[in-house]
């Protein structure tokens, strides 16, 4: 009788948080290795060691006393990104670009060295990471491939590929919208676009409630659109999965205009919304 109450018609093999935790995360990801994914500096070290394409690391600052000297070494760069190693929700990330007069700019406005030092100090003090201290990561600024702009040209879009024991199971493209404030997360009003892994094409667009064939801010049809470098990305994801001692991963990638596919970050607890985006349960991809 108990079984009947809990039996749910689930033809597509949708998994919930309980099954994700018990069958995917616990047996495949050891807790002691979580930090390799949760800490952006540690994950980048692994990526670099294995020669996996990702944004170049310009500097890692873990002490306030280092800020000035490390910053002075970076003055040859034309653009860079400053981020906390363990920040949450994308907070504390600043993209800096040199203006025509050689002055650093953030979101189109000039920014002084002191303001930059203050921001880095805040990161190291743990202001963005719910901790008492953190490490500041300064890396190359990736310029998204024109493919993304053809769909929607603002914010930071990325691909997510779920891998289990090195095998890619499912993928989606996450896109910001005019309502999502530059963020691509589904629960922050971004949209998810399904990926046909076999053909390397996009499928339907999911906005958290409804499905359609185009981005909400663009009438051009997305469904069926070819993804550039798709098979390179799949290879990159496989290589990344091998490099980490974690077997169940959500790997985030972007395509750089010049350098092609790049790994952005890896997640040990990838969300389950990807199933809705692809209209397919994760369980059914295992066979």
């Amino acid at each position: 009788m108990l079984r009947n109450i809990f039996r749910v018609n689930n033809p597509k093999g949708v998994i919930g948080l309980n099954r994700r935790n018990i069958e995917f995360i616990y047996p495949h990801n050891q807790r002691k290795h979580y930090t390799l994914a949760d800490d952006k500096v540690k994950s980048k070290m692994i990526l670099h060691e294995n020669n996996i394409a990702c944004a170049r690391t310009y500097a890692i600052i873990d002490r306030i006393s280092q800020i000035k000297s490390k910053w002075s070494e970076l003055q040859n760069q034309q653009s860079l990104v400053i981020k906390p190693a363990r920040g949450c929700g994308g907070e504390g990330i600043k993209i800096l670009k040199k203006g025509e007069d050689g002055q650093w700019q953030s979101s189109g406005r000039n920014i002084t060295d002191n303001q930059i030092f203050q921001h880095i100090t805040s990161i190291i003090s743990g202001l963005f990471s719910m901790a008492s201290n953190d490490v500041c990561l300064i890396e190359e600024c990736i310029v998204p491939h024109s493919f993304f702009a053809e769909i929607y040209d603002e914010g930071v879009p990325d691909f997510r590929i779920i891998t289990l024991k090195g095998k890619p199971l499912m993928a989606m493209l996450r896109m910001p919208t005019s309502k999502s404030d530059g963020k691509a997360n589904l629960h922050q009003k971004g949209v998810g676009i399904g990926v046909n892994m076999k053909y390397g094409t996009l499928t339907q667009v999911f906005d958290g409630k409804n499905y359609s064939n185009h981005h909400p801010d663009n009438t051009a049809r997305v469904n069926g659109k070819k993804i550039p470098y798709w098979f390179t990305m799949v290879q990159l994801a496989k290589k990344t999965a091998k490099a980490f001692p974690l077997e169940y991963l959500g790997i985030d990638l972007v395509i750089d205009k010049v350098k092609g596919p790049q790994i952005m970050e890896v997640n040990v607890r990838p969300g389950l919304g990807i199933q809705l985006v692809n209209k397919c349960g994760l369980q059914s991809t295992l066979s």
Binding site: N10, L17, Q275
Partner: peptide
């Protein structure tokens, strides 16, 4: 602790995939 079924709130969340006529 060994329960792997969908949570009730997930039934709601994944309703489009669970509802077979939607397929």
């Amino acid at each position: 602790g060994r329960y792997i079924g969908l949570r009730w709130t997930e039934l709601l969340r994944f309703q489009p995939l669970l509802n077979s006529k939607f397929a």
